[in-house]
Amino acid sequence: MSNNDVSILDCNWDLCPVSASWFGYRPSLPMNAIFLAIFTIACTAHVFLAVRYKTQGFGICMSIACFLEMSGYAGRILAYTNPWSLPAFFIQINGVGLAPTFFAAGIYLCLTRIVIAYGAGISRVQPKVYTYFFVICDIVSLVIQAPGGAISSVSASQGKPPILGAYIGLSGICFQVLALSIWLGLGVEFAFRCKKVGIGAWDPKYDMLRTSWRFKAFLVALGIATAALYVRSVYRIAELSGGYTGHLAKDELAFCILEAVMIAVLSLVTAAFHPGYGFGEDYALITEQKSSYPRPWKRHAFFMKDLKSEEVLIELRGQHKSFVRTDGV
């Protein structure tokens, strides 16, 4: 805790060393100001792009995530003045801790459209599985992590190390990493299936889309964002294994590189190579095609092989293009 048995709640610059604070160090003002500016720019960009390209789901997830990051780094800036500040500690652990859950949800939403762009029939599971299953997993992760932050706040307000809350939050992040690993596995498996069937079996409606540099850049950006999120999540597991006041949690350089930089890269590349820009005019068409699939928990609606017996070809009004409708209409 602090020297001379002073409660951490009573600590200040005169009574306690900074190593006895909630952070274990005095947060760097320049570093946190830079990241606050980055996430403010990213948040503004994602809000604008969501309106520009009408990507509501992706835009909402990314905008909320960026806003939470902004609040987290604002809390760290407050802690520069007083690293024993409970409000600053609360704001940081909840803002920086919960934001990646919304980033993950945004990333999960992209795979459905990628699958449709190459050919839903190639996929093992029908497109909506990628949306519903993994967004539900993300909600579960959030539901686990949020009480962890609340319990940590209560413990800290009593002057106690927030150990229990940290472990609850850790379990939520572990679940998130598991879900992200499964999502990556399905994405890689779909890529191998596309390669196995060959280009001739890919959906011809989206030939121009797949060969465009914008779409290819989007895929690369999504890969970078996913890798950054994965690195951050693994770091977070290692960090919280020692609690919010453990050794790794008090290493600001590790936090800067493995938390702040990773999430900053994620937020910026997904804005620079936004899915609305990457898919272009085909985004709306793919969205309409996606809506034609039944919810995956309906009978015979999870795997593509179960849907093929119910295929119905329909023509999109005004598009002069068609896609396979699978809801039995």
Rank of each mutant, 00 (worst) to 15 (best):
Ile257Val: 14
Val18Thr: 09
Glu239His: 08
Val47Pro: 00
Gly121Phe: 07
Tyr206Ser: 03
Ala228Val: 01
Pro30Gln: 02
Tyr293Arg: 07
Val135Ile: 15
Met208Glu: 10
Gly185His: 04
Thr44Tyr: 14
Arg317Phe: 05
Gly106Gln: 14
Tyr206Pro: 00
Gly169His: 09
Ser19Thr: 11
Cys66Lys: 13
Ser241Pro: 13
Pro127Glu: 05
Phe23Val: 06
Ile182Phe: 10
Trp22Asp: 03
Val6Asp: 01
Lys160Tyr: 01
Pro296Ser: 09
Ala284Tyr: 15
Pro30His: 02
Ala228Glu: 01
Thr55Met: 09
Gly198Gln: 03
Met70Ala: 05
Tyr206Val: 02
Pro275Cys: 12
Leu222Gly: 05
Gln158Cys: 02
Gly72Ala: 04
Ser85Ile: 01
Thr101His: 03
Gly242Val: 15
Met70Ile: 13
Ala150Arg: 01
Val154His: 08
Leu109Thr: 08
Tyr108Pro: 01
Leu307Asn: 06
Ile314Ala: 02
Ile314Arg: 08
Gly169Ala: 10
Phe323Asp: 03
Glu69Ala: 00
Ala105Trp: 02
Phe103Ser: 04
Gly106Tyr: 11
Gln176Pro: 00
Gln145His: 07
Tyr118Lys: 11
Trp183Asn: 07
Phe35His: 12
Leu229Tyr: 05
Ser141Gly: 15
Glu315Leu: 13
Arg232Lys: 05
Phe175Tyr: 14
Leu313Asp: 04
Phe134Gly: 04
Val312Cys: 10
Arg299Val: 13
Ile41Pro: 00
Cys110Ser: 13
Gly242His: 09
Ser7Ala: 08
Pro83Ala: 14
Gly242Gln: 13
Gly72Asp: 04
Asn4Trp: 04
Gly185Arg: 11
Tyr25Cys: 01
Gly276Val: 11
Asp14Met: 09
Arg124Ile: 13
Gly280Glu: 03
Val197Asp: 03
Lys160Cys: 00
Met70His: 00
